[in-house]
Design a protein around this nucleic acid. Structure first.
Lengths: 139, 139
DNA sequence: AGATATAGCTTGTATAATGCAAGTAACTAA
DNA sequence: TTAGTTACTTGCATTATACAAGCTATATCT
């Protein structure tokens, strides 16, 4: 598979309809994508192995697939951590960060309507890099 | 398959983790469920055949499956339309209606970040039954 | 009464997505 | 030189989805 340039949201997947809900679900309407975005946004995760550590237990092939899709959608960017390592660095773009209100309202709904849910505690090492709080109200 | 009583959100699907985002995705993290809720909430749709008419083109087996799941989750209720007909009547419960802020923020995100999206125009006959506006701000 | 239509599904089958385990490639450190 | 780290890919079994067809109970028409 030969991917040249990241595509943008304007040109990506086939729409089922022009409805904004339907179109949004075409992008992030699955059980994993928002969790990866959560990990980047609230826990400052940036590397493949870090995403694998999340308690939901994503598998490596799904993770690789979703990271590629996020890049193609322009929601995340991939960079080399340093020039002498294979280590990669995934970060949210502005587009990706714009999903914050979505994650927030989903979080609040879950906390209120599903029993035994709680905001995960991040590891100290994760918290160091986390730029945004899970609870914070405003962008 | 023998389903006795509707289950409630507290006892339904296996959690991948206690994270409220993860748990919410376990319930509605697919490409169809929120569209059915949209149809009930904003377009006043109540019947099997009405859901089939939506432009995204859900298939009958998936629709039947999701309506059953929504009932099991306590997000929707199924009733007979009248006592002399097979006609069914699906309606959101209070739990289901509580997803309104989620649909709203998803709608706004889609409108702003995905090209060529627009709020669908409902048919006059649908609008008659619609209790809530797609655009309205407050519950 | 018998035929046609309507509504709400179920069933069958092909294709696609997911889950799980294992393996590979490039570099890094000892 | 050897072992470890990181980011994946591959293979295969299971599950979900898409598409088409069919079925059942009532409602309506003639």
């Amino acid at each position: 598979m030969q991917v040249t340039k990241p595509k943008y949201l304007t040109m990506t997947p086939p729409k089922r309809s022009p409805c904004p809900i339907s179109c949004t679900l075409d992008l992030i309407g699955d059980r994993w994508t928002l969790l990866i975005i959560r990990d980047m946004m609230f826990f400052g995760k940036q590397r493949f192995e870090e995403f694998l550590e999340s308690p939901e237990g994503i598998s490596t092939n799904i993770l690789a697939n979703r990271l590629r899709l996020l890049e193609e959608l322009g929601l995340a960017e991939k960079q080399l951590y340093s020039n002498h390592s294979r280590r990669m660095n995934y970060q949210l773009t502005e587009q990706g960060k714009s999903l914050r209100p979505v994650l927030k309202v989903v979080t609040l709904w879950g906390l209120k309507h599903i029993d035994d849910t709680q905001i995960p505690r991040s590891h100290p090492t994760d918290a160091d890099r986390s730029t945004e709080s899970f609870e914070a109200t405003e962008p």
